[in-house]
Design a protein around this nucleic acid. Structure first.
Length: 208
DNA sequence: CGTTCGATGCACT
DNA sequence: GTGCATCGAACGT
């Protein structure tokens, strides 16, 4: 019932060098307008995957059926299944034909927190205590569950919805960069960017 | 604290 | 058949 002052980011936001987009993505708000209700959270952690020369980027093998959205226009969602279990959501950047994207890894919940709670608990067969708010969307697999984002939204337009990213004027106190989490190759490239010290960060190693 | 490991689907070789 | 941009439970120290 709040958060009315968001302006949806235009395609020009995404059609830039990916590391520039990465820095600007922290503090923006991921929104899903869903029949069950609206859910939203501020992005506090993200990673860049840039081009065929990045061994960890899905474009590393060249164009395939799976990675097609990476080669398409910027400002679209790239949603894929990881480890057979988790749908992960990315925002496609740069220009058509230049495969690159930002993986959204953690959110600070803002709207639809009850929905997020229900979705997370349903996934656990409802047998656990409520998930602490800071943990509802910490981690790329967790946040897609909480936000009800799955592969049906692969390729969807982040300007038209139903998934959008908004600028709500949130001021980020500080950014910290580190290596990307959970990948085998090129984990040393400092292409993970986080809201410094935010409680909703993911991973075994938080903070930095 | 720490590390290991199973669940699970599918694109790619 | 192999290998994941993960999660969380189960163990060891």
């Amino acid at each position: 019932m709040s958060g009315r002052r968001g302006s949806v980011l235009p395609v020009s936001f995404y059609a830039r060098p990916t590391l520039d987009v990465l820095a600007d993505m922290i503090g923006k708000v991921l929104v899903h307008d869903h029949p069950a209700g609206r859910a939203a959270g501020a992005i506090v952690e993200a990673e860049a995957y840039i081009g065929e020369d990045d061994p960890a980027c899905h474009a590393a093998p060249g164009p395939t059926k799976r990675n097609a959205p990476l080669y398409g226009p910027p400002g679209r969602a790239y949603v894929y299944l990881n480890y057979g279990i988790h749908d992960l959501v990315n925002a496609v950047t740069e220009d058509e034909g230049r495969p690159a994207a930002i993986l959204i890894r953690a959110l600070a919940p803002l709207e639809g927190i009850d929905l997020m709670q229900d979705r997370r608990r349903a996934r656990r067969q409802g047998r656990d205590a409520p998930v602490p708010e800071a943990n509802l969307c910490c981690g790329p697999g967790n946040l897609t569950v909480a936000m009800a984002i799955d592969r049906r939204l692969n390729g969807s337009d982040l300007v038209r919805g139903p998934i959008t990213i908004e600028d709500r004027g949130i001021v980020v106190p500080g950014l910290v960069y580190s290596g990307r989490i959970g990948i085998r190759h090129a984990a040393d490239r400092p292409w993970r960017c986080v809201w410094r010290g935010h409680p909703a960060l993911s991973g075994p190693r938080r903070g930095s």
